[in-house]
Amino acid sequence: MPPLNYFVVESPDEVGREAYERIAADVLQDLDLIKVIDRLHIYVDPKVPIFVAAGQLRHMPRAIRVADFANVNAGEKEIVLDIGDETYLAPLLRKLWALFGKENVDQPDRFTVVLPAGLAGEEDLEQMVVADPSETLYKDVIYALQYIAPEGFKVRRQYIRDEKFYYVASEDTLPGDIVETMVAPILAKMGVTL
């Protein structure tokens, strides 16, 4: 797998450790998260029972603006948006409908959106934020960790902010100071502080 800069799986059970290394690699690969996660440390001990995954993300993708995937051509009567990549077309249309009303947003074909002139400035339109991939990315990272963790570990605490994340899970109630006692030392091993 390895484009991760740091990837360690720790467990008192050697067979389980190897299995979880493989599971984590498979899941991250399946969900296309290898390029997103920079460092990851997993600790799992079924006797306690506890599962901790902590790490750091690479820099987050920036917000997607209209100019990133479309050309804005302002004419005398109308503004024509020439769509280059359809990926964000649906959120763009939703946004335009909300701002200008459906009657003002015309889409004569798949790759063209036409607005009457004067509704918005060319610059404003180009800089309009359409989607924020980091939002779904956070969800994807947490989902991946949930997927890696043993299924019986239903009690969990998760955190993801400023490119740092952790996920602690157990079968039993988690102690209130679990982050200080278990997660912080693991993050410290990678040189990360919360």
């Binding site: 059970d13 067979v15 299995a19 079924p46 043993p150």
Partner: peptide, 16 residues
Amino acid sequence: NEHDLAVYALGNFEEC
């Protein structure tokens, strides 16, 4: 019990 045999697909940890 209605089958001839059961294959249990269990997990990774001896303890579990």
